[in-house]
């Protein structure tokens, strides 16, 4: 019974990671990845590793989505500029 929270956290991580892989559009994938960061932090907390959870939260919930979204924007803008030059 005490392991119920561990099972729930593991199932959530497995489901979120599967959804992240199955999503095709990069912008929507960044949204799922942000949720995955939070769920992973919960998993680390449940495993009594709050220090790892803290760094996972800092990187996963804000930094990874920011980098991904900036990259998507730059790639789209570059594609639009090249179409204009033709």
């Amino acid at each position: 019974m005490a392991d119920a929270v561990i099972v729930v956290a593991l199932l959530l991580v497995a489901a979120t990671a599967t959804v992240a892989v199955a999503t095709r559009d990069p912008a929507r994938q960044a949204l799922v990845l942000s949720v995955l960061g939070v769920v992973l932090a919960v998993l680390f907390t449940v495993f009594q590793a709050p220090d790892v959870g803290l760094s996972q939260l800092a990187v996963g919930s804000a930094l990874t989505p920011l980098l991904l979204m900036l990259t998507v924007r730059k790639v789209r803008r570059r594609g639009r500029d090249e179409e204009h030059e033709r």
Binding site: P50, G53, L54, A62
Partner: peptide, 12 residues
């Protein structure tokens, strides 16, 4: 952990 999440969640 809750404090960091309350700060960084809205930022994301």
């Amino acid at each position: 952990l809750g404090l960091v999440l309350a700060l960084l969640g809205p930022v994301g």
